[in-house]
Amino acid sequence: MARATSPRRKALTTLAAWSVALVIFFPVLWMILTSFKTEPSAVAMPPQLFTADWTLENYAEVWQRSDYPRFFWNSVVLSLGSTLLGLAVAIPAAWAMAFVPGKKTKDLLMWMLSTKMMPAVAVMIPLYLVFLKLGLIDTRIGLVLALMLMNLPIIVWMLYTYFKEIPAEILEAARMDGAGLFKEIVYVLTPMALPGIASTLLLNVILAWNEAFWTIILTTTKAAPLSAFIASFSAPQGLFYAKLSAASTMAIAPILILGWFSQKQLVRGLTFGAVK
């Protein structure tokens, strides 16, 4: 797009693009604005974009009432823990599929992805019972396992596409230089694929953070993350809009910020390398 465009056309497209972007973003913006209003002005008719009596009280109240730090910490532990564990399992698998491909490699990848198509609700009861039997209900380790398995196919896929871009010759050179399999992966493959591994990590932290089915089914209090916390806020009638907004903002802010910083890598990762 190196062509010169007339300033008039540029102004028009800029206006159109910004309008569309603001419409898409507006619910998030409105939620953030509402979180700083008092409850009465949050439901004032006609609605006001900005109010004079803005307040931090909602945040303070949500903080006190709900033990936010514990939910937050659980979210961090669950999303990071499940992703790191997933990477540890997936890096060797992706290495094998990318550098020692066989006739069945493609089928295996497809099969892995197809496990994600199984509706979670369909296997909810048996899985709950298994977790109950193993004493994993409402434990962090149980949730870490569940989230890890849920995202494993995506982690393997993403790593596979990143690894495939690394020339096999470099790994062969390491082998000639006397590196064993373990050293080859630690000293050569992992550092070279670091950007890809980082974007895989980010995306899966986000997916795990936002997971709201298993976290609700498999936790009660001790291991419940922010997605379960927000579910407990989700049936207010009218009067709690400001607090609902504050709680929601607190639940999504960490991931929103993380996501904005890494959006370029995320998009590439999510396409499984199929779109350059």
């Binding site: 998030v28 936002n210 927000i230 809009y241 609902l244 639940a251 929103l256 904005w260 959006q263």
Partner: peptide
Amino acid sequence: ILVIAPFFVMPPVAASILENL
């Protein structure tokens, strides 16, 4: 950045914000 924002909003938040607000 504006356009991608909804993707980072967890489903229960998205649903309850759109439903209520």
